[in-house]
């Protein structure tokens, strides 16, 4: 199992470096530019701007508000693209490419294959966020003399790591879709629809009280992007819910993959009943 996990991490090495650097550049650009237009942002009242609220940007008049709106709010969206690509590529993608056949014929239980791939994805996402966190700390240090804020370097680093449970859920949704649906394209599409639905569903639910009932069903409900989260951190209960959802998704992916006929790529309802 450990060897398999190690191999899976090796396969993800380029993705970790590439996405780590890419999201770090995004972070450095957004956070680093704050001193250039903080005066203008101070006048930027978003309270009545429904569009901004719909995409989760709630306040930009302070450094914490700006960072939460750009970095805390949008970096997980960027990383979710990686999560969907990586998650759907893990089983469905490898099956499409024909690589999975040789792997499942090795003396490895299928549950270990799924678990190792899920763990490798989890570690890859964590390492990307460590890189991003370091970039965020570096950027804050670079502009510290120009910014007056209670947000510390540790807060910046932890705010990156707090994204992990959320992007992990997105990756595991994609992994489950890859274990269940016939090919990568469908799995990625299904995961994207679920992700986008959750994101905008949550934003709308935050704007309209009538949608309160659906909030517990949306993953973004368990990820806070209010400015205070930078200094106070995400709620432990929310983290626990997201980690719990990820674990359930991994179990479902194991269940789906155990039953899957590899190399066949049929829709679930087209599959023959197996003894």
């Amino acid at each position: 199992m450990f060897r398999l996990l190690w191999q899976e991490l090796q396969f993800r090495r380029n993705g970790i470096i590439g996405w780590g650097i890419g999201v770090s550049i995004y972070t450095a650009l957004y956070v680093g530019l704050y001193p250039s237009f903080d005066d203008q942002l101070a006048l930027f009242d978003l309270a009545d701007m429904a569009f901004y609220q719909a995409i989760g940007i709630t306040e930009m008049t302070s450094f914490a508000g700006y960072v939460s709106s750009t970095f805390v709010n949008l970096a997980p969206i960027l990383l979710s693209i990686y999560a969907i690509i990586s998650g759907s590529g893990t089983l469905a993608g490898e099956e499409d490419e024909g690589k999975l056949e040789l792997m499942v014929t090795l003396p490895i239980p299928r549950w270990q294959i799924v678990t190792a791939k899920a763990l490798a994805t989890a570690v890859a996402l964590f390492l990307i966020l460590v890189i991003v966190g370091i970039a965020a700390v570096g950027t804050l240090s670079a502009i510290a003399s120009q910014v007056e804020t209670p947000v510390t370097a540790v807060d910046m680093f932890l705010s990156a790591l707090y994204m992990w449970p959320l992007v992990m859920v997105v990756a595991m949704i994609s992994l489950l879709m890859g274990a269940y649906l016939p090919n990568r394209r469908t799995a990625a599409l299904a995961a994207t629809v679920i992700f986008v639905g959750n994101y905008f569903g949550n934003s709308l639910a935050n704007m309209y009280n009538a949608l309160d009932a659906i909030k517990p069903l949306l993953i973004f409900t368990y990820y806070d992007n209010a400015p205070a989260v930078l200094t106070e951190g995400q709620a432990i209960a929310d983290i626990a819910v997201l980690v719990g959802i990820s674990l359930v998704l991994i179990l479902l992916a194991v269940w789906a993959f155990q039953r899957r006929n590899i190399t066949v790529g049929a829709w679930p309802w087209q599959r023959a009943k197996v003894v």
Partner: peptide, 13 residues
């Protein structure tokens, strides 16, 4: 061959 290697599962037998 794939059925022997449990790549695909038989419906019977």
């Amino acid at each position: 061959q794939r059925a022997l290697l449990d790549v695909i599962r038989p419906v019977s037998g």
